[in-house]
Simulated scan of single mutants.
Amino acid sequence: MLTRKQMQLLEFIRQRVDRDGIPPSFDEMKAALDLRSKSGIHRLITALEERGFIRRLAHRARAIEIVKIPEAMERGFVPKVIEGDRANLPSGAMPVTPDALDVPVMGKIAAGIPIEAIQNVTHHVAVPGSMISGQGQHYALTVEGDSMIEAGINDGDTVIIRQQSVAENGEIVVALIEGHEATLKRFRRKGGMISLEAANPAYETRILPESKVKVQGRLVGLIRNY
């Protein structure tokens, strides 16, 4: 996983190597990232090297070699943010604002047949602060499947989740089933049973005992990838 500054520096180095055949100087990096001192660049370079994205070659000036790049950079990923905390998300997209915060992407979530439970952090996405205002931790998940398509959630979208263990009827949640399968569905409780409803008539509602379902968060927003 990379912070936003680490991602910016890696992208700047890549652009300069592609254009000039050599990496930028530390002064150029400092100016590009609008940092006050070279010590900040040193810390970013060290972090990128420790994470295996670059390699510094000894006894050579500007000797920085890019070893790998994040998947998001390979795809030219530019997030388009759609706000919403219920099923009916607006269709318009809004740009990432200056107050954007980095939210960890924890892996993939099924909007269809449940898949393996939430994984480790893979990267971060920038999310407008207004979307995640208030208390609580937030994380993001990449959607796989089309069972929530009528709620405006498509295969490949990134959902922003507020971490919580309770939910109200009708909310879209991340539900962990029997401790090992995670899915994104509309939540309803009746008596001691939990219904996990799809937003696609091709998928059946799953009804499970309350003891087998654990809420891990509630949908608060969405990033659409075009």
Rank of each mutant, 00 (worst) to 15 (best):
K68W: 03
L176V: 05
V96F: 04
G221W: 05
R19W: 05
S39N: 12
R55F: 10
E181K: 15
M7F: 08
R43H: 07
K212H: 14
E65M: 08
I82P: 06
D34K: 15
V127R: 06
L222S: 08
S147A: 15
G179K: 00
V121E: 15
G221L: 00
Y203N: 03
I54V: 14
F12K: 06
A31I: 07
G84K: 01
I160D: 06
L196S: 07
H180F: 01
S165R: 13
I13P: 07
V159Q: 08
R19D: 11
A100V: 12
H138W: 08
V17W: 01
M94F: 12
Q15S: 12
R189N: 10
R189P: 08
P114F: 02
Q163Y: 01
R56A: 08
H124C: 02
K80W: 10
E204M: 12
Y139F: 15
S37T: 15
G92E: 15
S130G: 12
E49I: 07
E210N: 07
K68M: 02
G221M: 08
E65H: 12
H123W: 10
A47H: 00
D157F: 12
R4A: 08
P95C: 10
H124P: 03
N200K: 01
N154D: 12
G191Y: 07
P209Q: 13
Q164V: 05
E168T: 14
E11K: 14
A167F: 08
P104L: 00
V127S: 04
M1L: 07
L33E: 07
F12G: 04
V166H: 09
T205F: 09
A63V: 09
I109S: 01
H180D: 12
G217E: 06
V166T: 14
R86N: 10
I13N: 03
E171A: 11
D85S: 11
R16I: 05
K190H: 13
V159F: 04
R86H: 09
S195G: 05
L57E: 13
G191P: 03
Q216T: 10
M73E: 03
G192V: 07
K108N: 11
S147H: 00
A151V: 03
L10W: 02
V96T: 14
A32H: 06
R86E: 13
N200V: 06
Q119C: 01
K30C: 05
R62M: 01
Q216G: 09
D85V: 06
A140C: 08
S195W: 11
A140Y: 02
P95T: 14
A72K: 06
V159M: 02
R218F: 05
V125T: 09
D99V: 14
F53S: 09
P24A: 02
R4K: 09
A199G: 04
A151M: 03
I66S: 02
S130K: 13
E11A: 15
A167L: 09
R55D: 02
Q163H: 15
T158M: 14
L2Q: 02
V96Y: 01
I109V: 15
S195V: 07
T205H: 11
Q119V: 07
A31P: 00
I82D: 06
R224C: 08
R51S: 12
V173F: 04
F53P: 00
F26H: 10
D27A: 14
D34I: 04
G221S: 11
A93T: 15
L176C: 04
L57Q: 12
N169A: 10
A32E: 10
D102G: 15
